[in-house]
Amino acid sequence: MAYKPRQGSLKIVDVAQISRVGALSVTEARLRIMWKFAWSVGVTAALNPTLYMLSVGIGVGKLINAHSGSVDGVKYLTFLAPALLATAAIQNSMDEVVFPVLEGFKWTKSFFAINSTPVSARQIADGVLFAAILRTAFSVTIYGVVIYLFGGFTSGRGWVAIPLALFAGAAFGAFIMGIAVAAKNDDTFFMLLGRFVMMPLFLFSGTFYQLTTMPIFLRWIGWLSPLWHTTELGRYLTYGHHLSLAMVCVHVGYLIAMFGFGLRYAHQQFEKRLSK
C-alpha cells in the first residue's frame, strides 16, 4: 500500500478546530509517553504516601501525640495530611513539566516538531501543563486514599485538600515550566531546583510544624512558598485551623496569581524559544 495523497491537507486539516483544541493533542502525546512508565508512576504514587504515613505520620506522630496530645488541636496525622498532599502535588507537577520541557527543547527537540504543525507555542505549553495536572490528580488521589486508610482525615471534609493540592500543583507547575524553558544547563538546573527551591520549601513552609514556630527571620521562606499558602488553606478547610478572612483571601489570591502569572510567563518563554 503505497503513500498516495488522496484528498490533500486543504481538505482534511481543520485549522479552526486546532485553534480551539490543539493543546489536547499535546496532552494526548504526553499521556502516551507517561503510559510507557505507568508501572513506575503507579508504584511511586502508592509507595511514597505509604512510607510517609508509616514513618512521619505514625512514627513521629506517636511521639508528638504522646508528648503534647495534639498539634493545632488535632492529631498529628490530620495536621500533616494537607501539607503532604500539597507537597506531593507540587513535586509531581514539577517533575511532569520540567522533564518534558527539557526533552522538548533540548534533548529530542520534539517541541520544534510540534511547532511545525498548526499547534501554537501556547498550546504546546498548555498541553504539557494539562498532562502534568492529570498525572498530579492521579497521584494526589492515591495519596488521599492512603491518608484516609491511615486515619488522617478525621472530618468528612478531608477530601477537600485533594483539589486544593491539585490547584497548587497546577500553579507551581505553570511557574516552573516557564523557568525550565530558559534552563541552559540541565545538571545545574536540577541541582539548583532541588537544593535551593524544593528542599527549603519542604522544610520551611510549615509542613511538619506551624510556621509561627520558626524564628521570624526564616518565616519569609514560607510566605513566598506556595506550599505554605496551600497548607494553611488545607488545614483551614479540612479541620478548621484558625484563619482570618483576610488571610484566606491572601492564600487564595497568591495561588491564583501564581497560576496566572506562571502560565503567562510560560507562554512568553515558549513563544520566544520556538521563534528563535
Partner: peptide, 20 residues
Amino acid sequence: NLDNALTVEENLYIYGRYFG
C-alpha cells in the same frame, strides 16, 4: 526531532493528531 520514547507507529499517530 522524533519522540524517542515512542514507537515508529506512535510517532506517526501523534503527529497526525497535531493536525487534528
